[in-house]
Design a binder for these strands. Structure first.
Lengths: 248, 248
DNA sequence: CGGTTAATTGACGTGAGTCAATCTCCGTGG
DNA sequence: CCACGGAGATTGACTCACGTCAATTAACCG
């Protein structure tokens, strides 16, 4: 059903991302690449990689594509709680808990590696740099989650949307997905609404305001940030919480 | 300055909490108790245990008292992103990142154990059950953070405040801090506002509504939940995300 | 060319914020 | 014993950012 997966080096974004956290050893990289090769999968847009309530027994590392983590209330209200980008891992450790407390849906076609728990534990145990890098990634993901709470709780709509765009820009940058000041942006206004806690209508108007000030161009799934500095100021954005800087 | 700390068994809430995640071994408990004894500290209400931007080099395990994690925007807006209760650990692993991305403030007098990184790593390495339990605790904390995003993003004020009360109730229960249907509740309306993304005035009115429906009594730092079932229904609350059930 | 999903607009309603005054505790000092 | 001050809780009046509803347009796809 799926075509064979044979692109040049699928593990590239993962390695770049983890390397930004901790210098990976040659050995660690090799082990990781092997594990990824052994568990390649694909998902289609709209497909759920995991659903709230599902048992968890493996870790997924995203190689290409965009996804989102989301939760749904009984009456249908939906909140996207995070985006998942290439190089991110889904639940590097949620498997310590038995059950998913949220769902993970693909926004685009997605390639990922599914690593079963035993293989994953072996991987962690076999290389220290890899273990630390993966834990770091998990910690950063928590930090992002905290910032989202702040974003939704204390920023007004314009700041809020601007902040989300800044975050995505900063996260796409280190994995080589920013071209100049532009990037693919496969997020519908409905997704943006569910991610920011706003209504679709208001997101639409907010985007128009950002466009109107010449800060961004967003059309045809392509985002261009004309004035990053000003966008960050608008959003009260500081990248510190992304912990991108390598540390000693 | 501080009186000596010699209460009966300070480590009790920690052990209860971790045991709810993973059955701790005798050995693990002993090691943990020793580590806690070696690093006892106190903090006073209003004091910050850590401040955004601080370097991190130790783990703090809370033995008694309430704290909150919070972030502040440049113009003073504040968002509490989580409460920290006895048995919780502060950043069991944020120390993998070099710098705090948020602050941690004491709401009440607090007793905690400060365990330096080397001692903490040794602790984790020496007992498997302890290591897993502490990672679980970290994962649950992430799950809570996600639920807060949903709470603030998609629930209306009444649901939102009710949800927070339900969560705190469920978290206080396993550490023995619920007496009947009541508990100490040292959280001001200003704190509640900063935790729910509402204004103080609106929190006040929302509490009155909850009181008016006979769901809760809240006065003199004492919270009584008269009708937990109904409060949960009001909040669209499900405790699943707290992953309290032990698993096999 | 229909059918669908996403984006956009306008009109209107409202939940929640802001401002500002008042009230209630408390602890402190004279 | 009481004036004073400060923190927290409470109220009322008013405002507005954002939501809802509903219709229209644009883009895409077989």
């Amino acid at each position: 059903m799926h075509p064979p997966i044979l692109e040049g080096n699928l593990a590239q974004p993962v390695i770049r991302r983890l390397n930004a956290m901790r210098q990976l050893s040659e050995r660690g990289i090799a082990l990781l690449q092997q594990a990824i090769q052994d568990g390649l999968h694909r998902a289609r847009p709209g497909e759920d990689l995991a659903t709230e309530g599902d048992p968890v027994d493996s870790v997924r590392i995203i190689l290409s594509g965009w996804l989102c983590r989301y939760k749904t209330l009984a009456d249908g209200r939906r909140q996207i709680v995070n985006f998942v980008l290439p190089g991110d891992s889904c639940d590097a450790c949620v498997y310590l808990l038995s059950v998913m407390d949220h769902s993970i849906g693909a926004l685009t076609p997605v390639t990922y590696a599914d690593i079963k728990r035993p293989a994953f534990e072996q991987l962690l145990a076999s290389d220290r740099s890899l273990e630390e890098a993966l834990w770091c990634e998990t910690m950063v993901s928590s930090a992002i989650q905290r910032e989202w709470t702040v974003n939704i709780g204390r920023r007004v709509a314009l700041e809020r949307v601007a902040h989300l765009l800044c975050e995505l820009y900063e996260r796409l940058l280190p994995i080589g997905m920013i071209d100049g000041d532009s990037c693919l942006f496969p997020v519908t206004q409905m997704d943006l609404a569910d991610a920011t806690g706003l209504s679709v209508v208001h997101v639409n108007r907010t985007l128009q305001e950002l466009r109107g000030s010449g800060l961004i161009v967003l059309r045809d799934r392509m985002l261009t940030i004309n004035d990053l500095k000003l966008l960050k100021d608008t959003a009260l954005f500081s990248a510190d919480y992304l912990h991108t800087k390598r540390h000693g």
